[in-house]
Amino acid sequence: MTEYKLVVVGAGGVGKSALTIQLIQNHFVDEYDPTIEDSYRKQVVIDGETCLLDILDTAGQEEYSAMRDQYMRTGEGFLCVFAINNTKSFEDIHHYREQIKRVKDSEDVPMVLVGNKCDLPSRTVDTKQAQDLARSYGIPFIETSAKTRQGVDDAFYTLVREIRKHKEKMSKDGKKKKKKSKTKCVIM
């Protein structure tokens, strides 16, 4: 069974824990209790493949930012979460993405942009803004509501699919490099 290491990042209060708990335990946590770091595991079937999701729910508070490099190193894919009623959390996505790329030393890291709290009427981040940002990053965008469960499975499952595509691409690139290195030079 394939294991996928997913990391949920975003500013404090955007609903990272609520999304994760909704996926794992099928219930909505409405009281806000700032996370330092929590880890969850769940076995699911995605596109006919049974897999184990190892999900790291991270601290959004700035005082825990020193811990970010460590979990970013171990993560295979990242859910970059903002709240649709919090423009600052949307603007912060850029910083999370840049930090992930720096730590992973790669421009090509599996990510999904997630606009959470889409059940709320007080939207300050337009869907088109988020779609445009995701398009500019070359990553999928999904709106979710941890409260109603809308888009929750889709967000995590899409990230797994992005990781699969990335692994497939990397193995193809690896095979191309191996083929090239088999060419021999004969000096007579």
Rank of each mutant, 00 (worst) to 15 (best):
I46Y: 11
D57G: 00
S65Q: 06
R164E: 08
V44A: 12
V186G: 12
T58D: 00
K104P: 13
I142T: 09
R123A: 10
Y40C: 00
D119F: 11
V114M: 05
K177Q: 11
R97A: 06
V152H: 11
Q70W: 03
R164V: 04
K169L: 06
K182C: 03
P110V: 04
K175P: 08
F141G: 13
M188A: 06
K88Y: 03
E91C: 03
V114G: 01
Q22R: 09
A130G: 05
Q22P: 00
R102V: 05
L23H: 15
F82Q: 04
P121K: 10
G77H: 01
N26E: 13
A155E: 05
G12P: 07
M188P: 14
P110D: 03
D92V: 04
D38T: 00
G12C: 12
K16T: 02
L56S: 01
D33A: 01
E107A: 09
K16P: 01
K5D: 04
D105V: 03
R123V: 09
E107P: 04
T58W: 00
T2H: 13
I84K: 13
T183I: 11
T20E: 00
Q99H: 08
A155C: 14
T2M: 15
I93R: 15
I46D: 14
D33H: 01
K16N: 02
D173G: 11
L113P: 01
Q131W: 08
V29E: 11
P110A: 05
N86Y: 02
Y71P: 15
L56D: 01
V81W: 01
G75W: 05
V14S: 09
Q70L: 05
K101R: 11
M111C: 07
R97V: 15
L56E: 01
E76Q: 09
G12F: 07
Y64R: 02
I21K: 03
E63D: 11
D105I: 14
L52K: 15
R68L: 03
V112P: 02
Q70D: 04
D38L: 00
K16V: 00
A66N: 10
T20W: 00
A66Y: 12
R164W: 05
S65L: 09
I24R: 01
E3I: 09
D154F: 06
P34A: 07
T58G: 02
A155M: 13
Y40R: 00
D108A: 12
Q131S: 08
K165L: 13
Y96R: 15
E31V: 14
F28Y: 08
V103R: 11
T74F: 04
I36W: 01
E3N: 15
G151S: 15
V45E: 13
P121G: 10
V14P: 14
L113K: 02
E76Y: 14
D119R: 14
M188F: 12
S39L: 15
E98K: 03
D30C: 13
A59M: 01
E37A: 03
Q25F: 02
V125I: 09
Y40I: 00
R149S: 06
Q70T: 13
S39H: 03
R41I: 03
S136G: 13
M72C: 07
C118G: 10
I139F: 05
S122M: 10
D69A: 05
H166T: 10
D132P: 13
E3A: 13
H27F: 12
K101F: 04
C80L: 12
Y32Q: 02
E107V: 06
I100T: 06
G48L: 06
E37K: 02
P110N: 04
A59E: 01
A83F: 03
A66E: 04
E3P: 15
G77P: 01
P110Q: 03
V45F: 07
I187W: 15
K167Y: 06
M67G: 04
D57R: 00
E168G: 11
C118Q: 05
E62D: 07
V186A: 11
D154C: 05
K5L: 01
G75R: 04
R149L: 12
P110W: 01
P121E: 12
D54N: 14
N26G: 12
L19E: 14
E62I: 04
I21G: 04
Y32S: 01
S122H: 09
C118T: 10
D126Q: 09
A134G: 08
F156A: 06
D108P: 03
Y32W: 11
K167H: 09
L19M: 11
A59H: 00
G48D: 09
G174V: 06
I21L: 04
T124P: 08
V44T: 11
V114H: 02
K88E: 13
K182R: 06
G174C: 05
K180D: 09
R135I: 13
I24V: 14
Y71E: 15
T2W: 11
F156V: 08
S122L: 08
I84Q: 14
V109C: 08
I139S: 07
K179R: 03
K169Y: 15
T158N: 06
I24C: 06
Y4W: 04
D119N: 12
H94R: 14
F78W: 04
Q43F: 09
D38A: 00
G15P: 01
R102A: 14
D47Y: 06
T124V: 09
S181Q: 15
G75N: 09
T124G: 10
V103C: 15
N86F: 02
T158W: 07
K16Y: 02
Y4D: 04
L120E: 10
D132E: 05
Y71A: 15
A130Q: 13
M111P: 01
K179E: 05
G138R: 15
Y157Q: 09
D108L: 06
Y71H: 07
A146I: 01
V152L: 13
K104G: 12
H27K: 14
D119P: 07
D126K: 10
L19A: 14
A18V: 07
D126F: 06
V45I: 07
K88W: 05
E31A: 15
D54Y: 08
P121R: 08
S17K: 00
F156N: 04
I84F: 12
D105S: 11
C118W: 07
K165G: 08
D33L: 01
A11G: 09
T20N: 03
V9T: 12
L56H: 02
K175L: 13
D119K: 04
F28P: 01
H166Y: 06
I36F: 01
V125M: 10
S145G: 15
V45R: 11
S65G: 08
V160S: 12
M170G: 07
D108E: 09
D33M: 01
L79F: 03
M188Y: 12
M67S: 03
S122F: 09
T158F: 10
D132K: 07
T127N: 08
L19V: 08
K117Q: 14
E63H: 05
T127V: 07
C51L: 13
Y64S: 02
E91D: 08
I55Y: 01
F78D: 01
V14N: 12
T74K: 13
L120R: 15
Q70I: 04
T50H: 12
V160I: 06
K5G: 06
L23F: 14
V81H: 12
K42C: 05
K5Y: 02
D47W: 06
T58Y: 00
D33G: 01
L113Q: 03
D47M: 11
Y64L: 03
I21T: 15
A83E: 15
A155Q: 12
G138V: 06
S136K: 05
K172Y: 07
F78V: 03
Y64P: 01
N116G: 06
I84M: 13
V114D: 02
Q22W: 08
L23P: 00
R73Q: 11
I142S: 15
K177S: 05
K180M: 06
V186I: 12
F28S: 01
L56M: 04
V29I: 08
T20I: 03
D38I: 00
M67K: 03
S136I: 08
K128P: 07
R73V: 10
V109Q: 02
Y4G: 14
V14Y: 15
D47I: 02
Q25D: 07
Y32N: 02
S181W: 13
D153V: 07
M111E: 02
T74D: 14
Y4N: 07
E162N: 12
T50S: 09
Q129P: 13
M111H: 05
K178F: 10
I24P: 00
V125H: 12
V103S: 09
L52A: 13
Y71D: 11
Q43A: 11
Q22K: 08
Y32I: 01
E49Y: 12
F28N: 00
L113C: 07
V29S: 11
T158S: 09
I84G: 15
L79G: 01
K101A: 14
D33R: 01
F78N: 03
A130M: 12
